[in-house]
Amino acid sequence: MNFDEFTGQAQHRLGMPGTGETLRAIRATLMTLGQRIPEGNAEDLAASLPIEIKWYLTGAVHDHGQRFDWQEFVGRVSDIEGTDPADAAYHARVVIDLVHEQVPESDFQQLRDMLPEGEDAENWRKLFEVVDADE
């Protein structure tokens, strides 16, 4: 899938009127995810994405491997995207579902496995609600 197809699919699924809003949602989700996961995992996940999208996960501005919870994740996505937290959480779920369709299952499982298992695990599972609903 190329950049235009990826953004077109995201725009359709998110029900957004324009490409600009769609790209903000994609960028906010993937930049924040890139901050949360280790650099090598971000590179693995990004390898199957269009080059223009790949950078959001792996860009040099990231401090990879940060430890923050689901609420912080949603807050960061919301701030970057410039939308309210409920919309940001939904947008993140949809973007992650689209990423899931583009990457090898082993890389996606690696993403699931690196997110917390303890008290915050239930909250992080929210990120995969659309993916899990499709299966």
Results as ranks from 00 to 15, higher is better:
residue 87 D to Q: 13
residue 102 Q to D: 05
residue 106 S to W: 03
residue 83 T to V: 14
residue 66 Q to T: 03
residue 101 E to Q: 13
residue 80 I to E: 05
residue 111 L to K: 08
residue 87 D to I: 02
residue 107 D to I: 06
residue 68 F to T: 00
residue 112 R to W: 01
residue 79 D to R: 14
residue 62 H to P: 04
residue 68 F to Y: 10
residue 91 H to T: 05
residue 68 F to N: 01
residue 112 R to N: 01
residue 107 D to G: 09
residue 106 S to C: 05
residue 87 D to M: 06
residue 96 I to A: 03
residue 111 L to V: 04
residue 95 V to Y: 00
residue 102 Q to F: 07
residue 94 V to R: 06
residue 74 V to W: 04
residue 93 R to G: 04
residue 73 F to Q: 03
residue 109 Q to D: 13
residue 122 E to K: 14
residue 114 M to R: 08
residue 109 Q to S: 08
residue 68 F to G: 00
residue 78 S to Q: 06
residue 117 E to L: 11
residue 65 G to H: 06
residue 97 D to W: 07
residue 108 F to Y: 15
residue 118 G to C: 07
residue 65 G to I: 07
residue 86 A to G: 07
residue 105 E to A: 14
residue 116 P to I: 15
residue 112 R to E: 02
residue 102 Q to H: 15
residue 107 D to C: 12
residue 119 E to R: 12
residue 110 Q to S: 13
residue 95 V to D: 02
residue 66 Q to F: 09
residue 116 P to L: 15
residue 119 E to I: 08
residue 112 R to Q: 07
residue 83 T to F: 03
residue 101 E to N: 09
residue 108 F to N: 12
residue 77 V to H: 01
residue 86 A to K: 10
residue 102 Q to P: 00
residue 104 P to Y: 03
residue 93 R to M: 07
residue 112 R to D: 00
residue 109 Q to W: 10
residue 99 V to C: 01
residue 91 H to S: 15
residue 118 G to H: 10
residue 111 L to Q: 07
residue 66 Q to M: 11
residue 69 D to G: 08
residue 101 E to V: 02
residue 79 D to Y: 08
residue 73 F to M: 08
residue 73 F to S: 01
residue 100 H to D: 13
residue 96 I to C: 05
residue 63 D to S: 14
residue 88 A to T: 04
residue 99 V to F: 02
residue 93 R to N: 03
residue 100 H to P: 00
residue 67 R to H: 14
residue 66 Q to C: 05
residue 111 L to P: 05
residue 109 Q to K: 12
residue 118 G to P: 07
residue 79 D to K: 13
residue 67 R to T: 14
residue 84 D to G: 14
residue 79 D to G: 10
residue 112 R to P: 00
residue 92 A to W: 02
residue 71 Q to N: 12
residue 77 V to A: 08
residue 106 S to E: 14
residue 82 G to P: 10
residue 70 W to T: 00
residue 102 Q to E: 14
residue 116 P to N: 06
residue 84 D to K: 07
residue 94 V to A: 06
residue 76 R to V: 09
residue 80 I to F: 00
residue 99 V to T: 03
residue 123 N to S: 15
residue 72 E to Y: 01
residue 84 D to F: 09
residue 77 V to G: 06
residue 76 R to Y: 08
residue 108 F to L: 11
residue 118 G to S: 08
residue 112 R to V: 01
residue 97 D to A: 13
residue 68 F to Q: 01
residue 89 A to E: 10
residue 118 G to V: 11
residue 111 L to G: 05
residue 86 A to D: 13
residue 109 Q to F: 03
residue 63 D to C: 10
residue 88 A to Y: 00
residue 93 R to F: 02
